[in-house]
């Protein structure tokens, strides 16, 4: 008992060391596993499974620029020509039939089969702040999911509790688990504004040029429980599209086809 209190004190005292700036640093380290450069073009394939059977497949090209700017171009035959532009907490949708950029709210961004926010938002450090709740064994991946293999040896994780630092983010709160050794994202619980958990995200890294990079994200839906979404980043290429392409009025142009 005499040893317990000093140990508890040390444990508690150690936690504030992760507060504020260091949490931000942890998030930047985690972001680097998802987004290797500030401005990128990402070719994304989304597979939607229902009761473990592939139900739908979607293709997207996503342009990401600093300042929380993303442009999503839908490439699947059934969605071709649709675009979603995200400028910080502002969003626009272009349907090809109307050729008119339509201003949408953050809630509308959540609608649809594969939430645009899941596809276009690839970082946490600009959107969230929070604290380290503690250190724990990394959560084991759900059984019988082909995209996830149990790690060869148990890993320790940092458990972060993050709240939105800005308006318009896809999820109001995130419980994030980072591999303690290298800060690689392992899992996230994603909560909407009402406090309800909407999704559980699992991150799968692949070696790219010798460096581990998140190339697959698995989303388990708490609302549509028989659904599983697998987001595969088929190519992540450093590329800075011109600023004027991120003007909502420019969505009607086809200028990005060469980028």
């Amino acid at each position: 008992m005499s040893r317990f209190f000093p140990a508890l004190f040390l444990a508690v005292a150690a936690l504030p060391a992760f507060a504020a700036d260091e949490v931000a640093q942890l998030l930047k380290q985690a972001d680097a596993f998802r987004l290797p450069a500030e401005s990128v073009r990402v070719e994304t394939q989304v597979e939607l499974y229902r009761n473990d059977a592939l139900d739908k497949e979607r293709l997207y090209t996503v342009y990401v620029k600093p300042g929380r700017r993303s442009l999503v171009l839908m490439k699947s035959p059934s969605e071709i020509g649709q675009k979603v532009l995200m400028l910080a907490d502002q969003f626009w949708l272009l349907m090809p039939e109307s050729q008119r950029p339509l201003r949408i709210t953050a809630s509308q961004k959540l609608l649809g089969e594969a939430s645009t926010g899941d596809i276009a938002s690839m970082t946490w450090s600009e959107d969230y702040a929070g604290s380290v709740k503690g250190e724990t064994d990394c959560p084991p991946p759900p059984a019988a999911l082909p995209e996830l293999a149990a790690p060869a040896k148990p890993r320790r994780c940092l458990h972060l509790d993050l709240a939105q630092a800005r308006n318009g983010v896809t999820y109001a709160r995130v419980e994030l688990y980072l591999d303690k050794a290298n800060k690689q994202p392992v899992k996230a619980d994603l909560y909407v504004g009402s406090g309800k958990r909407a999704k559980e995200a699992w991150y799968v890294a692949t070696l790219v040029n010798g460096q581990p990079q998140i190339m697959t994200m698995l989303l388990l839906d708490d609302i549509q429980v028989n659904r599983r979404t697998v987001i595969r980043y088929r190519a992540i290429t450093p590329k800075a599209a011109p600023d004027e392409f991120f003007n909502p009025a420019a969505l009607v142009r086809n200028s990005l086809s060469g980028w």
Partner: peptide, 12 residues
């Protein structure tokens, strides 16, 4: 004009 208020409302 179109104005978005919060996460759920928009006015035009």
């Amino acid at each position: 004009f179109t104005r978005v208020v919060g996460d759920e409302w928009s006015f035009h």
